Simulated scan of single mutants.
Amino acid sequence: MIRAYTNQDKEELIALLKLNIPAYFAEEEEADFVEYLEQHLEDYFVVEENDKLIAAGGLNYFPESGESRISWDVVHPDYQGKGIGRKLTQHRINHVRQNPQINLLIVRTTQLVYKFYEKMGFSLAKTEKDFWAKGFDLYQLHMPLRGN
């Protein structure tokens, strides 16, 4: 089940992120994630199975430039590779398509998972070495949402 994030989910989500350190996130990113949840949250969704949070991911909006950004995707290691991330990403693509102000969906990720987004229809736009932390490069991908 995919539902909107609530403040009661915060501690469980931090624990979920920790399960993905150091495989997909650097240790220092935990503080960034907490700040995101407390100060930069716009639309954030969680995936529940049997009353347990197994994945989460968000959207942030930049209507002045007609862009939205996928943010803070995290999937429980036991559920990776089982289609959960695909369903959550498609849910957000469908959600953002309903906003006529948004023409471009952007994801900023790492070299570890950018191919997942390419399979979802995103195209690689740029890279930057050690952007997130040492060994965690920026891979920015784009998906046009309307004919430009």
Rank of each mutant, 00 (worst) to 15 (best):
R3N: 14
R3A: 14
Y5S: 09
T6N: 07
T6A: 12
N7V: 13
D9S: 11
D9L: 07
K10Q: 06
L13E: 09
I14A: 05
L16Q: 10
L19Y: 09
L19W: 09
I21D: 08
I21V: 15
A23I: 13
A23N: 14
Y24P: 09
Y24W: 12
A26F: 10
E27W: 10
E27T: 15
E28V: 15
E29Y: 07
D32P: 08
F33V: 10
F33I: 11
F33P: 09
V34C: 08
Y36D: 03
L37K: 01
L37A: 03
E38T: 05
Q39G: 08
Q39N: 14
H40A: 06
L41S: 02
L41C: 06
E42G: 02
D43K: 04
Y44K: 01
E48T: 05
E48K: 02
E49L: 00
E49R: 00
N50Y: 08
N50A: 07
D51H: 05
K52F: 03
L53H: 01
A55Q: 05
A55N: 02
A55I: 02
A55G: 04
A56R: 05
G57E: 08
G57N: 02
G58H: 01
L59S: 02
L59P: 03
N60F: 08
N60E: 12
N60Q: 15
Y61E: 01
F62W: 03
P63E: 01
E64L: 13
E64P: 10
S65P: 05
S65H: 12
G66K: 10
G66C: 11
E67M: 15
S68G: 15
S68D: 07
S68C: 14
S68A: 15
R69E: 15
R69K: 13
R69S: 12
R69V: 12
I70Y: 12
S71A: 13
W72T: 06
W72E: 07
W72G: 05
D73S: 13
D73V: 14
V74Y: 05
V75E: 00
H76W: 03
P77H: 12
D78N: 13
D78Y: 10
Y79W: 15
Q80F: 07
Q80C: 10
Q80Y: 08
G81I: 01
G83I: 06
G83Q: 00
I84G: 04
K87A: 11
L88Q: 00
L88N: 03
Q90N: 09
H91Y: 07
R92W: 04
R92V: 01
R92H: 00
I93E: 06
I93D: 04
H95W: 05
V96D: 07
V96L: 02
V96P: 06
R97E: 13
Q98K: 14
Q98E: 14
N99A: 06
N99C: 08
N99R: 08
N99G: 01
N99E: 09
Q101L: 15
I102G: 11
I102S: 11
N103C: 14
L104P: 15
L104W: 14
